Simulated assay, not measured.
Amino acid sequence: MSRTRVVFVHGLWIHSSSWSPWVDLFREAGYDPIAPGWPGDGATVAETRANPERLAGKGIAEVTDHYAGIIAGLEQPPVVIGHSFGGLIAQKLLGQGLARAAVAIDPGQIKGVKPLPFAQLRSGFPVLGKPGNAKRAVSLTAKQFRYGFGNAIDAAESDALYEQFTIPGPGRPLFEAAAANFRSSSPAKVDVANATRGPLLFVSGGRDHTVPDVVTRAAYKLYAKSPAVTELRQFPDRGHSLVLDHGWREVADVVREWVETKVPAS
């Protein structure tokens, strides 16, 4: 029997190589994990930084379709684990019946989520402050990364993560998420009422500026009418870098144990 597949989906501004420790952990636990990049991503951080035009204009629908295509080539539906906008993509794939289970870690804002804290606005301002960025790929500065991702770790670690993993990100998904509640056909819409989907776990960082805990909890509550399993785990002292900073293992172990309970390795 083939091993249970796990697909990791990164978010804006972070390269898929950041998932490497998670991939190793899940492989050792008996799963068959992969961490493919977004459409337009290069194989390395350096390659992606050198070719930002390949990412420009990519939106939520294109990214979702890209991962749906990858899943279509697998022998079985996988568990999908996503961070930030990857968490939004994970929810969409689960709602569409393409995943066995999903984990949404500090997930990008889906349609129906109403809280809009100042910290989230400030984190998104480098992109949302210029409407033309909807057609561009935008890079964060080290200072912007420190506020949006690394505020719960020390400055030296934040700067090191910035140098190691950050890449340009398409501006379009942020504009789509920001306008989601004003568009009936928004690509940020997720089938929260799907009663036959697999289990879903939300993970929230209590000090997250990019996706504050109140935003993750609001998304979690949107699933209340579905009888399918939906759970929430909170890490009060963690920020948006929780999947890649020095404390990644604590989060990964909680996620791995949850997955093992809901979808045992085959």
Results as ranks from 00 to 15, higher is better:
residue 54 R to S: 08
residue 99 A to C: 08
residue 217 R to I: 00
residue 245 D to Q: 07
residue 246 H to V: 15
residue 193 A to K: 10
residue 48 T to A: 01
residue 91 Q to T: 00
residue 52 P to T: 00
residue 7 V to N: 03
residue 242 L to C: 05
residue 141 T to Y: 05
residue 163 E to V: 08
residue 185 S to H: 09
residue 178 A to Y: 10
residue 94 L to P: 05
residue 214 V to W: 07
residue 256 R to E: 06
residue 199 P to G: 07
residue 54 R to I: 01
residue 192 V to G: 02
residue 5 R to T: 07
residue 12 L to E: 01
residue 245 D to I: 15
residue 76 Q to T: 14
residue 33 P to T: 01
residue 25 L to H: 08
residue 248 W to Q: 13
residue 163 E to M: 11
residue 75 E to P: 10
residue 228 A to E: 06
residue 237 D to E: 10
residue 54 R to T: 04
residue 129 G to N: 12
residue 11 G to R: 03
residue 265 A to L: 15
residue 9 V to T: 04
residue 214 V to I: 15
residue 206 G to V: 11
residue 184 S to Q: 12
residue 115 P to S: 08
residue 17 S to Q: 12
residue 133 N to Q: 13
residue 78 P to G: 03
residue 54 R to V: 01
residue 97 G to P: 08
residue 228 A to N: 05
residue 43 A to Q: 10
residue 243 V to S: 15
residue 17 S to T: 13
residue 159 D to Y: 13
residue 163 E to K: 14
residue 224 A to T: 05
residue 179 A to C: 14
residue 207 R to A: 11
residue 104 A to P: 02
residue 239 G to H: 09
residue 22 W to Y: 13
residue 19 W to A: 06
residue 61 A to K: 15
residue 120 Q to W: 12
residue 128 L to V: 08
residue 147 Y to C: 06
residue 51 N to A: 11
residue 192 V to K: 03
residue 162 Y to A: 01
residue 145 F to G: 01
residue 263 V to M: 12
residue 134 A to K: 11
residue 108 G to C: 04
residue 125 F to G: 11
residue 93 L to I: 03
residue 188 A to W: 02
residue 187 P to W: 07
residue 164 Q to D: 06
residue 100 R to G: 12
residue 111 K to D: 05
residue 56 A to M: 00
residue 216 T to C: 09
residue 174 L to S: 08
residue 34 I to F: 15
residue 26 F to Y: 09
residue 262 K to R: 15
residue 106 D to K: 02
residue 206 G to Y: 14
residue 18 S to H: 13
residue 73 G to E: 05
residue 42 G to I: 06
residue 82 G to Q: 06
residue 82 G to Y: 08
residue 247 G to K: 10
residue 181 N to I: 14
residue 130 K to W: 14
residue 120 Q to M: 11
residue 209 H to V: 05
residue 220 Y to E: 04
residue 230 T to C: 12
residue 69 G to R: 10
residue 220 Y to L: 03
residue 147 Y to I: 06
residue 5 R to V: 03
residue 164 Q to C: 09
residue 184 S to A: 13
residue 266 S to N: 14
residue 157 E to V: 13
residue 153 I to E: 08
residue 26 F to R: 02
residue 2 S to I: 09
residue 28 E to Q: 12
residue 79 V to I: 13
residue 217 R to S: 00
residue 150 G to D: 10
residue 171 G to T: 05
residue 57 G to Y: 00
residue 239 G to E: 12
residue 129 G to S: 11
residue 235 F to A: 09
residue 182 F to M: 12
residue 135 K to A: 13
residue 87 G to R: 00
residue 54 R to G: 02
residue 165 F to L: 13
residue 47 E to H: 04
residue 254 V to G: 13
